[in-house]
Design a protein around this nucleic acid. Structure first.
Lengths: 111, 111
DNA sequence: ACTTCTTGGACATCATTTGTCCAAAAGTAA
DNA sequence: TTACTTTTGGACAAATGATGTCCAAGAAGT
């Protein structure tokens, strides 16, 4: 049985690093991908270095371009963001547990 | 054994509602608490209705005023925020699991 | 060297948040 | 009801943060 604590290499890399790796495998310059996504080359560079935010439209474009699952990519993006919010919080892990309970609670109530 | 899924009443209420309940128990008007916190009455009203953000300073002030644990209050605040970010995400719970792994991973690395 | 790719800074613009005030609504007690 | 206090929501400017765009210089490949 796989330990819950382990992280695959894929999970370990950040959203930006992941996008860069996709682009690398496809052997495409920033220029081309950025054009396809209708954003500036420089902006894409920064996204890949986690210095700029992506958004829904960009994420969708990337997933279409590289034929990867859109929600997987979104999950990567959001989980990075939240990790950054909690990484320096003393009680980060406790917060996660509470959030989990809250989400489950509200979902049960609302659906 | 207590189910992991259960939520105490205290956990169920929002940050704002909690602050309001503290103020209610102490029987203090917004005016007085806001003055103590150096914020506008209106702002505090909105914080209690979760329509405005609190911040570190305000959270600290509230915990001092009502003699409650400062990190507990902070945990409440942040967990509310993150819950709101994830509540409407299809993959919210999956994201939480990944965040947990990431935090554990980075903490192991960095400390 | 020449060319292409990548990066970082500058900048205006746009969006969001904050602090503040005020008037009206809601509540309390005479 | 009237008088008083508390609470709310809207409006607004100021501050802060995000976005889009351009360009020049650094890095990498030929």
């Amino acid at each position: 049985m796989m330990s819950k604590k382990s992280m695959s290499t894929l999970e370990r890399i950040s959203f930006g690093e992941y996008v860069r790796s996709l682009r690398g495998k496809a052997n495409l310059p920033l220029r081309k991908v950025a054009a396809e996504l209708n954003i500036d080359t420089s902006t894409l560079s920064k996204i890949e270095k986690n210095e700029r935010n992506a958004n829904e439209q960009i994420i969708d474009g990337i997933s279409r371009m590289f034929k990867i699952d859109q929600s997987e990519l979104k999950v990567r993006y959001i989980s990075d963001k939240i990790t950054n919010q909690l990484l320096n919080e003393e009680d980060g892990l406790e917060i996660l547990k509470i959030v989990e309970k809250k989400i489950k609670y509200y979902r049960r109530k609302k659906t």
